[in-house]
């Protein structure tokens, strides 16, 4: 098995046509390896989120390839891409996007339920992942009863419940205070990262740069710098 988690080649994404065409991502190539935390940083509008969406099977590039284990994900049919996201990628959204009408454990079980796991079995597995993020005792509460940091951890539990090789974090500390944000990323680095898992984090938050293995800087849709983290 290759140690490359993501191999992105000459990705381009533009919006609009003719004179109105605007490049969000231009000729971006990069690799991300298993066992590393890669940060994508840059100012607003630099193309971070667009790039993240293309490598995670959410937004189709206008040109270029995203190879995961030598499979070009954008050559897959729609259902295949959905299955790819379900089985290979864990998302932690900026606003968590937890279902307020479900309990915490049910939220974590969602990817498992989408994978057709039996309801009760899914809840059992979800409880184990809640234990990993230290929230087993809060399993039956709705997410709205949890603090921001706790909700972030629930979102992480949900993201790792389907045992993905690639974890995508979109601005994980944006809604948290500095201390909680640091603790979350520290927890991710210590307890979630593994040899067979790659974590890509999009962030503005320089306070958590110390946890990165590599930091990829973007500006105007291009990668302008790749640095080794602290």
């Amino acid at each position: 098995m290759s140690d490359l988690a993501v191999n992105a080649r000459e990705l381009n994404k533009w919006f609009g046509e003719g004179e109105a065409r605007t490049f969000a991502v231009r000729d971006v190539s990069f690799e991300a390896r298993f066992g590393e935390i890669l940060y994508i940083v840059g100012p607003s509008g630099s193309g971070k989120t667009t790039l993240l969406s293309m490598i995670s099977g959410i937004l189709k590039p206008n040109s270029g390839h995203v190879l995961i284990e030598n499979q070009d994900i954008w050559s897959l049919p729609d259902d295949g891409i959905a299955d790819f996201r379900l089985n290979r990628i864990g998302f932690v959204f900026q606003d968590y996007h937890l279902f307020p009408r479900l309990t915490t454990v049910e939220n974590v079980a969602i990817p498992l339920i989408l994978k057709k796991m039996d309801w009760n079995d899914a809840l059992k597995v979800a409880l184990e992942y809640l234990d990993i993020v230290g929230l087993k005792a809060r399993a039956q509460l709705p997410p709205v009863k949890l603090s921001g940091g706790e909700q972030q951890r629930v979102a992480i539990a949900r993201a790792i419940a389907s045992r993905p090789d690639l974890l995508i974090f979109d601005e994980p500390t944006a809604s948290l205070d500095g201390d909680t944000g640091r603790k979350i990323v520290e927890f991710v680095k210590q307890d979630i990262l593994s040899d067979r898992r790659c974590i890509i984090i999009v962030t503005h938050d320089s306070r958590i740069f110390e946890f990165a293995d590599r930091i990829m800087k973007m500006e105007d849709g291009r990668i302008t710098d790749v640095a080794t983290g602290a």
Binding site: F84, R85, L86, F91, F93, H97, I110, P111, L114
Partner: peptide, 18 residues
């Protein structure tokens, strides 16, 4: 009200027909 949540489900891997 649940649109974003449905979008999140889609992102996680739910298919349109589901």
């Amino acid at each position: 009200e649940n649109l974003e949540k449905f979008g999140a489900l889609k992102a996680i891997g739910a298919k349109g027909r589901e």
